[in-house]
């Protein structure tokens, strides 16, 4: 009998601590599958964030260096410049990447640092208990926007992918989702392309993943997955946002 499904080599056997229905575990697996397929496990260094994925090193079976909150892109820059032939990725949430770490993200992108950033956008601060994130949608309730995010008081949700796409240093940016089997397959393709772009020396690349957070959205998993399609992706449209084509053509 042929084995058609197994745990990726780069994924440790530790059970995930994530909430039921959370997107993180899916994304972890997707990344590990890509690392295996590209044969880069021994050559990869990851940078987990402060946030729900803070203990990502318990799951990824690759070398990892924890970054202080928001500094993933700066830490990854230091690693990559020291070891340019390694594959370096940072894994960051929306508060980490688009609030406290905006400057680090923006400037790493602008310098065209040859790193891959996995940007997990779940429109909320998950680990701290559901506060308003820079990507929280207008009208969306959170523990720090109880009546719903109000543009006048709280500002608008930030589209980091579109902003970074404007910088000369970025090679490839795509927004994906992990709320359906089809989207997960697309997400995997994008992640693989991003890593391939880095291997090819294309420059800064980022995959923004719309990730369901049933716990803090106060929904069941099915509704959360539906909400990504029906609501969240209206503000954050899925698709390729920038592709300079600097990576290998067959990376798609």
């Amino acid at each position: 009998m042929k084995k058609v499904f197994s745990r990726p080599r780069s994924l440790k056997s530790t059970p995930f601590h994530y909430c039921a229905g959370c997107g993180h575990s899916i994304i972890h697996r997707v990344i590990c599958e890509v690392i295996d397929e590209l044969g880069i496990r021994g050559n990869t260094i990851g940078v987990p964030p402060a946030g729900c994925a803070v203990v990502a090193y318990n799951y990824f079976d690759v070398d990892m260096l924890e970054a202080p909150h928001g500094r993933g892109c700066a830490v990854a820059t230091g690693i990559k410049r020291t070891l340019p032939d390694r594959v370096v990725f940072s894994y960051q949430g929306d508060g980490d990447l688009a609030a406290i770490g905006t400057a680090e993200t923006f400037h790493a992108a602008n310098r065209g640092e040859n790193i891959t950033v996995l940007f997990i956008n779940n429109a909320v601060y998950g680990m701290t208990g559901g506060q308003m994130a820079p990507t929280t949608l207008l009208g969306q309730t959170s523990t720090t926007s109880p009546p719903g995010r109000n543009a006048i008081l709280d500002g608008h949700p930030i589209r980091m992918s579109e902003i970074l796409a404007n910088l000369e240093g970025t090679a490839y940016i795509e927004r994906v989702a992990v709320n359906s089997a089809q989207n997960i397959l697309r997400a995997k393709k994008a992640v693989k392309k991003a890593f391939q772009y880095q291997i090819d020396g294309a420059g800064f690349n980022m995959i923004e993943v719309l990730s369901q957070c049933p716990t803090n959205w106060k929904m069941n998993t099915v509704d959360a997955c539906r909400w990504v399609d029906e609501v969240m992706s209206k503000t954050f449209p899925i698709g390729v946002i920038k592709d300079t084509g600097k990576g290998r053509k067959d990376a798609d």
Binding site: A67, P68, A76, G78, I79, R81, T82, A103, E104, R111
Partner: peptide, 21 residues
């Protein structure tokens, strides 16, 4: 690297140090 901030600079050093520099 001329960093974008003092914070970024020290965190780049953190990465470089962990990578053996």
């Amino acid at each position: 690297i001329q960093a974008e901030s003092e914070i970024a600079a020290v965190n780049m050093v953190l990465g470089a140090s962990a990578a053996g520099a």
